[in-house]
């Protein structure tokens, strides 16, 4: 009986995502347990922060001020570029840029299944979090929400083996897909042809295809290219830019152009791949044509 019940639940959870009510209920039930684990660790971190010496604080203050200065300088040029971009867009009559809104969430300090790259955050459905919402940190893309529960949510990292993210190479605008490998700090780009123009050190940014991740956020840098003539595709590896291992604060991203962000709920990572594959094939065809010329 229990076996049949479990199998039924698994099928529903895997295919239809209709178990969210059950999951939400359970998550509220286990939240105290999680908090019990989370609190002492957070507390000790807080203690360390508060007991740091005056000289360390002064030092930190100095570096932060320097950093702010640097960012201000960057900001000045960014504003000018943004204005220019708007003017050019107006000239081209193209769609207006999509605005994004972010909200900071804190990582719950609990371990989950070590074979799945997942983390849990302290914001949930009641904060407007929805399934498949994009998550970034101060450096780059972290992952997407898999289950939005009432007061907490599960986030799948981009390095999970079942995760794929549509990206483009910032230098050449070549679109492709980066899939997780199951190793922290490694992504795999399986669909780049052997004659690809990718170089080591190239920046990968989200392409915005697939509708889950907003375009333009950094994802990773290319760290390894292996071209073997016998294979149709090159073996390209990348390292995520986001600090996946030791990040504490994450940012949830909302796209303001959508009427209701929950419209996206029906998407799953698999749809994401299917949606972006046609584009990808196109790219590869054009590349191969170039190569044969």
């Amino acid at each position: 009986m229990a076996v049949i019940l479990s199998i039924t639940i698994m099928v529903f959870d895997h295919h239809h995502r209709q178990t969210s009510a059950v999951r939400s209920g359970l998550s509220v039930l286990i939240y105290p347990v999680q908090y019990l684990v989370h609190l002492p660790i957070r507390g000790s971190e807080w203690l360390v922060e508060n007991l740091s010496s005056r000289s360390t604080l002064a030092e930190e203050n100095k570096t932060l001020k320097a950093e702010i200065l640097q960012l201000r300088v960057n900001q000045q040029t960014t504003l000018a570029v943004e204005q220019e971009n708007l003017r050019l867009r107006a000239l081209l009559d193209s769609a207006k840029k999509i605005e994004e809104r972010v909200l900071a969430a804190e990582l719950l300090r609990v371990d989950m299944d070590p074979y799945q790259h997942q983390v849990r955050i302290n914001k949930g459905y009641s904060d407007g979090v929805f399934s498949n919402q994009a998550i970034i940190d101060a450096y780059g893309v972290v992952g997407q929400v898999t289950h939005a529960n009432t007061i907490s949510s599960d986030v799948m990292l981009i390095t999970d083996p079942s995760h794929a993210i549509p990206v483009q190479i910032n230098r050449s605008n070549l679109r492709t897909i980066a899939v997780g490998t199951g190793h922290v700090n490694r992504l795999y780009l399986p669909y780049l042809p052997n004659n690809t123009t990718v170089k080591i050190g190239d920046l990968l940014v989200t392409s915005g295809l697939g509708g889950i991740f907003p375009p333009g956020y950094p994802v990773g840098t290319i760290t390894g290219i292996e071209q073997s003539p016998g294979q149709p595709f090159a073996k390209v590896l990348a390292t995520p830019i986001a600090h996946l291992e030791n990040t504490r604060e994450l940012l949830l991203v909302w796209r303001e152009d959508l009427e209701d962000p929950r419209d996206l709920e029906d998407f799953s990572p698999e749809d994401d791949i299917e949606l972006s594959l046609p584009k990808l094939n196109l790219d590869m065809e054009s590349l191969q044509n170039e190569g044969s010329k």
Partner: peptide, 22 residues
Amino acid sequence: SGWAVGLVTDEITGSLLGQHAL
């Protein structure tokens, strides 16, 4: 009881609901 505990474990470890339960 095993099934119920498994369901809670599923949620707490973030695995597929029913995996530990089974």
